[in-house]
Design a protein around this nucleic acid. Structure first.
Lengths: 293, 293
DNA sequence: ATTATTCATAGACATGATCTATAGCTCCTG
DNA sequence: CAGGAGCTATAGATCATGTCTATGAATAAT
């Protein structure tokens, strides 16, 4: 397994392709003797003549032609590889795989995704939704480039950047219009039917813990599995929904929902963007990260 | 069209394949820092990370994996090319294309061809028959590696090696038994029916010219197109055949033909082996040439 | 003949690949 | 927890190898 210097094959390729050592030299920004020498090295290493030299240039011997048939392919592949890498660098191709929750995609990431896709239409976007632990697993398995979840994240393998803050709150529809403008205590709130996100949500755990710290037990009248339902049920007056305020900004503005204020301050939730520590980011991923950072 | 140093791709290949710069270094008989540096060069040139470094070695980033898919192919092709060249050098493959006349193949070249094929069964033999001018054309067009014809050949583009001598003579069968042992003059010979090779043969021209120089006109009673027929007709007693003695050595020995001696010495004919001047020979061709030289 | 090509060769030179030495990091082990 | 055994990165010195210049030799065209 000796293996010649691959650089020699580049010289051979151009010499064979152009039928002239002089031309090959020009293409490669070398001098003619360099090319001559390189070819000689190859010929010596194989113990076979590759070219016949004549006064107008060179032409391949049968053995040289055999070699060329392989090297040409090989050379083309390298050319394609270099093109591809340039594309990847210029974000003309590649993919960006992001893990997160559907609601974060919809209410937080969507405008960034649109802008990114407009600017780099060659990058394939892949959105993978799952719970926070699932997202972490996907990251570690290399199935996604970025994970977008609620803080806090504590995992030594992960590098987490804090992004925007989200503020959770309680909202209700016209059915509970009497609460508009009021400042409720936890106790007062608990007299109303509460709608919470289903059990394994981190936001739900956070609010349940908060109530628990104040000595109250927050148990929902209704549990739902999607943010859309959380909104819908509150509007229909089935209860008071606990939800991220930013996800209902439209409804709050148009007045179909209003915030039910508590006298206890709800701690804000950070959105964290996770990447694997010490694993280099894809060009696409690092560009995207720069935009949402 | 920048094109990295191809040697870097060799390093990249082994690093990616083994997942370890240290192992790649061992494979390539380099030190680990060299490999590290080479990879860095590639990464810098692309502006893209190719590996993520961890404590157990390295692993490809998505971009690195993309590059690898091209480079692996390319590397395999070069490996195949080098194997192929080694085969060609060791004469384990390749081909040998010889041009000549059927009778020279059969009576002169055959034993060499047999021996050559026994020793190098991987070499494909191609025998192409034609007249001397055709053979020369084939040579110049690169369709054959060697031409085997009768001398003299005068062509500045050709390099001719003289091989064995052939002696032309007249032979007859038992029908003309009375001539056995006799020494005939041209005049006497011409009283018998003469069998000659067909018009465009060089041997025929030579003997016709010889007779002409002595003031005689040699015109055949029968013309044939093959040496076999020349022999056969002489044996059957249809005339006296002009033929190369070496081609009928078996018949002369077994007595089915005998030589009709002339008092004029027939000039010997050289066999010439032609190659193109200044065009390197195939390994197979030069080996074969060495054996018949 | 003369000129303009081509490639080959020899020897000087300098670039750049490679080396040594060292540091930093992670993981494993006693 | 300390120490060792992996791994890769970095810096700087070194020297080999690729590249150059200068020249020659051959061929073809003018």
């Amino acid at each position: 397994m000796s293996m010649n210097n691959f650089e020699l094959y580049k010289v051979f390729y151009w010499a064979a392709k152009s039928g002239s050592l002089t031309k090959a030299a020009k293409t490669l920004f070398l001098t003619q003797p360099s090319v001559s020498h390189a070819i000689k090295q190859l010929e010596d290493s194989f113990g076979v003549a590759l070219f016949s030299r004549n006064s107008k240039g060179v032409s391949l011997t049968p053995e040289g032609a055999t070699l060329y048939s392989y090297i040409e392919q090989s050379h083309i592949l390298i050319g394609l590889a270099e093109e591809k890498m340039a594309e990847l660098k210029k974000l003309e191709s590649g993919e960006l795989r992001i893990g997160g929750s559907d609601s974060l995609f919809k209410h937080f990431l969507l405008p960034y995704l649109e802008a990114f896709h407009d600017e780099y239409p060659g990058i394939k976007l892949q959105l993978i939704h799952g719970t926070t632990p699932e997202i972490i697993t996907f990251l570690k398995e290399g199935r996604i480039d970025l994970g977008v979840v609620r803080m806090p994240i504590v995992d030594p393998q992960l590098e987490v950047r804090e992004s925007i803050q989200l503020q959770d709150c309680f909202v209700a529809g016209s059915r509970y219009a009497e609460l508009k403008g009021e400042l409720l205590s936890m106790e007062q709130l608990l007299e109303y039917p509460i709608i919470l996100f289903s059990r394994n949500s981190r936001a739900r755990k956070a609010v349940t813990d908060l109530f628990h710290n104040y000595g109250f037990n927050l148990k929902p009248g209704i549990e739902v599995g999607s943010v859309d339902l959380l909104i819908e049920l509150a509007r229909k007056g089935l209860g008071i929904s606990f939800i991220t305020r930013e996800f209902v900004s439209r409804e709050l503005e148009e007045g179909s929902l209003f915030e039910v204020k508590l006298d206890v301050k709800m701690p804000p939730a950070q959105v964290g963007i996770m990447t694997l520590r010490n694993i280099p980011l894809t060009r696409a991923a690092s560009e995207f990260l720069g935009r949402i950072g």
